[in-house]
């Protein structure tokens, strides 16, 4: 039975990290209806900034982590201001294409540094002995990752529901022109959405980097790996990202734990989430928590 519960715990842990990595995509989509294909590069940048501050400058890892979130907050905000602001009002596909180009530019910049083609790992800063209860174990890295995920997601959920700026962002998400007509600064909202996406990406990058080690290809791949999460969750729903992340994490772990190695199967953890995604979208085309918009003419 402990095997079953271990898989449940692992699934929730992996799913939570997926949710955190997906959060930035949701935030950008929620405000501007744009899928950001440069998200993986920002995830990687956050991890590398933390590493650089910790190892090269000697800043304690906790402060490096906070600093990297602040730096990527402003970095993403600047990116939006320089590259994307002039595209407000342009077709969405144009903006998406720009994010693809932006990803290539960020790739190029990171490849100019040693982080592009070398491997690193964070210094050990958490206890290496896992927490165990009844045969179920969880590492400190995973536990801290889950806690950070839920703090960030909880904070952002509150921000969108209760704060004036958050409500403005939701309004812009619904209708840019109507929002402008009531005095909401759409460019400011877009900038803030990108900035928050950058902040959450840095957090995700640090957690993933602590689990997998710091390899640029591995890290930036998570910008794409989490796309099924936001599609399943409904693209613009933070709650959807959390629920979908955990569902996908659990599917992966249960597939790996119970299907792989039996009946000649292998690698089902990679495939099953997509199969479930197709089935869910068949019945709920807008995802689990997506909004089904009806326009009356």
């Amino acid at each position: 039975m402990s095997y079953f519960f271990q898989i449940v715990v692992s699934g929730i842990v992996v799913g939570s990290i997926y949710a955190l990595a997906a959060l930035g995509l949701v935030l950008v989509y929620k405000s501007s209806r744009v899928a950001n294909f440069a998200h993986g590069q920002i995830i990687a940048a956050g991890a590398f900034i933390t590493y650089y501050l910790t190892v090269s400058i000697g800043v304690p890892v906790f402060f490096s982590f906070l600093a990297s979130m602040i730096i990527t907050f402003f970095l993403a905000m600047s990116v939006e201001k320089i590259f994307l602001r002039r595209l407000i009002g342009e077709p969405i596909i144009s903006v998406i294409m720009v994010t693809i180009g932006l990803g290539s530019i960020l790739d190029g910049l990171i490849y100019l540094t040693p982080f592009g083609s070398e491997n690193f790992s964070f210094p050990v800063f958490l206890p290496q002995q896992p927490l165990s209860l009844g045969g179920v174990s969880i590492s400190w890295t995973q536990l801290v990752g889950v806690i950070i995920t839920f703090i960030l997601i909880g904070g952002l959920s509150w921000f969108f529901k209760k704060s004036t700026i958050g409500i403005s962002m939701r309004a812009v998400s619904d209708d840019q022109f109507a929002s402008m007509s009531v005095g909401i600064s759409v460019p400011r909202v877009f900038g803030l959405a990108w900035a928050l996406a950058g902040l959450s990406a840095a957090a995700a990058g640090c957690i993933i980097g602590n689990i997998t080690g710091l390899n640029f290809d591995t890290l930036h791949a998570f910008g794409i790996v989490v796309f099924p999460v936001i599609i399943l969750g409904g693209l613009d729903s933070i709650l959807g990202a959390v629920v979908a992340g955990i569902i996908i994490g659990l599917i992966q772990q249960f597939s790996s734990g119970y299907l792989d190695g039996n009946w000649g199967l292998s690698g089902t953890g990679e495939v099953m989430p997509y199969i479930i995604l197709v089935v869910v979208l068949f019945f709920k085309p807008h995802g689990l928590f997506g909004i089904h918009e009806i326009e009356r003419v």
Partner: peptide, 22 residues
């Protein structure tokens, strides 16, 4: 005993425990 094809796994607990069980 088994050939495991990996993915972009963040946690290999299930796989490792399965191998141990075999």
């Amino acid at each position: 005993v088994e050939v495991v094809e990996h993915g972009k796994d963040l946690d290999n607990t299930a796989m490792l425990k399965r191998l141990m069980s075999k």
